[in-house]
Simulated assay, not measured.
Amino acid sequence: MHFTGRTWRPPYEASSFIVQVTSGCTHNKCSFCSLYKNECFRMSPLEEFKEDLAELASYQPTARRIFLTGANPFVMSYENLAERALLIHDYLVECQTIAMFSSIRDIKNKKVWQLRRLRSLGINGISIGTESGDNSTLLLANKGYTAKDLIEQCRKLDEAGMEYYFVYMTGLAGKENSYRNAVNSAKVFSKVNPRFISVDSLTLFPDTELYRMAQERKFIPAGEKERLEELQTFIKHLQIRTHLFANSVSNFYPTTAFLPKERDRIISELQYIIDTVSEEEMQEYRRNLHTLG
């Protein structure tokens, strides 16, 4: 199999079969991220892609879900995505779903009819690193789009019947900005229909712009208890039916919940941690977190 640079997939894609279709990130400017800093964006040549599909088919011919790697393979044109999807079905006849990462920016150049067609070809389960729905936080994170863009593009996915997932990042807005970020993000996310929301908590790594800003005191990180309170606020203000996963290693207290059914239960759990665990213990956990893998 051909794998170039970092190969990264969400925890919930652990049982999916991975095939490289791109490597690197077309944006590569998010202030908190260093995952693809030293990689140029590359699209796998068709012959290389076919070789990988043939190899996968030789040992796993009944693969039903494929996850295409790269920071944002959905940036590819409609025609290119359709061609790759058809090739997957040629080699893996039992494949039902083709999932991948996308940015909000990558949806803009696709019409609803094209999204419907891609959905009919099995492309479904789009993981979108939204991180926030608050314009000030999106600007700080240098995401390259606004809350209005997020709503407009995800409503196109909704209209096309394409399933998608969000990421929300606590702590990203910085100290004393968490409440604003949570409320505004919940309002924006509630205008669309993510199948589930995966929650991470900001961890500053040395080779990021946000880390440099923190060193220069231009960015003050939120405390750990503030982050848990932010998550509580976010959950309280969400007005959609969704599944929330806050169980990645970046979260001091891992938990999941079906919302709104389990809203009170998860808010109570988080409050118990806030009340019984010291800020120092939580910060020690953060300092010892050297990788999110």
Score class of each variant (00 low, 15 high):
residue 115 L to P: 01
residue 84 R to A: 15
residue 95 C to P: 07
residue 99 A to Q: 14
residue 111 K to R: 12
residue 117 R to I: 07
residue 88 I to E: 04
residue 85 A to G: 12
residue 138 L to W: 05
residue 141 A to Y: 04
residue 91 Y to E: 04
residue 91 Y to H: 09
residue 101 F to I: 08
residue 139 L to M: 09
residue 130 T to L: 15
residue 133 G to S: 02
residue 132 S to N: 03
residue 93 V to G: 02
residue 90 D to H: 08
residue 92 L to Q: 03
residue 97 T to R: 15
residue 102 S to N: 00
residue 84 R to H: 14
residue 90 D to F: 02
residue 114 Q to G: 09
residue 91 Y to T: 06
residue 118 L to S: 02
residue 141 A to M: 14
residue 122 G to N: 13
residue 123 I to R: 04
residue 129 G to F: 08
residue 132 S to I: 04
residue 85 A to L: 15
residue 134 D to H: 15
residue 134 D to P: 12
residue 93 V to E: 07
residue 117 R to T: 10
residue 102 S to W: 01
residue 104 I to A: 06
residue 94 E to S: 14
residue 108 K to Q: 07
residue 98 I to R: 10
residue 121 L to Q: 00
residue 110 K to I: 01
residue 100 M to C: 12
residue 137 T to G: 03
residue 111 K to T: 09
residue 140 L to Q: 15
residue 87 L to Q: 07
residue 120 S to F: 10
residue 112 V to Y: 04
residue 138 L to K: 05
residue 112 V to S: 04
residue 100 M to R: 03
residue 115 L to C: 04
residue 109 N to V: 03
residue 85 A to E: 15
residue 83 E to H: 14
residue 107 I to M: 02
residue 137 T to A: 07
residue 119 R to Y: 07
residue 130 T to A: 14
residue 139 L to R: 14
residue 137 T to F: 03
residue 103 S to Y: 13
residue 130 T to Q: 10
residue 131 E to D: 12
residue 104 I to E: 02
residue 109 N to L: 00
residue 103 S to D: 13
residue 128 I to F: 10
residue 87 L to G: 09
residue 96 Q to V: 05
residue 123 I to L: 14
residue 138 L to D: 03
residue 87 L to S: 10
residue 91 Y to D: 00
residue 124 N to I: 11
residue 107 I to E: 01
residue 92 L to C: 03
residue 90 D to K: 10
residue 124 N to W: 10
residue 93 V to N: 07
residue 97 T to D: 15
residue 136 S to N: 13
residue 125 G to Y: 00
residue 115 L to Q: 02
residue 90 D to R: 09
residue 107 I to W: 00
residue 106 D to E: 09
residue 86 L to E: 12
residue 95 C to A: 11
residue 126 I to K: 02
residue 106 D to A: 05
residue 101 F to K: 09
residue 94 E to C: 09
residue 109 N to C: 00
residue 113 W to K: 11
residue 116 R to L: 07
residue 133 G to P: 04
residue 108 K to M: 06
residue 100 M to H: 05
residue 125 G to C: 05
residue 111 K to Y: 11
residue 103 S to K: 13
residue 84 R to V: 12
residue 124 N to S: 14
residue 117 R to P: 03
residue 97 T to G: 13
residue 125 G to Q: 01
residue 83 E to Q: 15
residue 133 G to Y: 01
residue 121 L to M: 03
residue 107 I to P: 00
residue 125 G to D: 04
residue 102 S to L: 04
residue 139 L to F: 08
residue 109 N to K: 06
residue 104 I to P: 02
residue 84 R to S: 14
residue 116 R to W: 05
residue 132 S to Q: 03
residue 121 L to W: 01
residue 85 A to D: 15
residue 129 G to Q: 10
residue 98 I to G: 13
residue 98 I to W: 14
residue 101 F to S: 13
residue 140 L to Y: 12
residue 141 A to S: 12
residue 109 N to M: 00
residue 105 R to N: 09
residue 125 G to V: 02
residue 136 S to V: 13
residue 129 G to R: 03
residue 99 A to I: 06
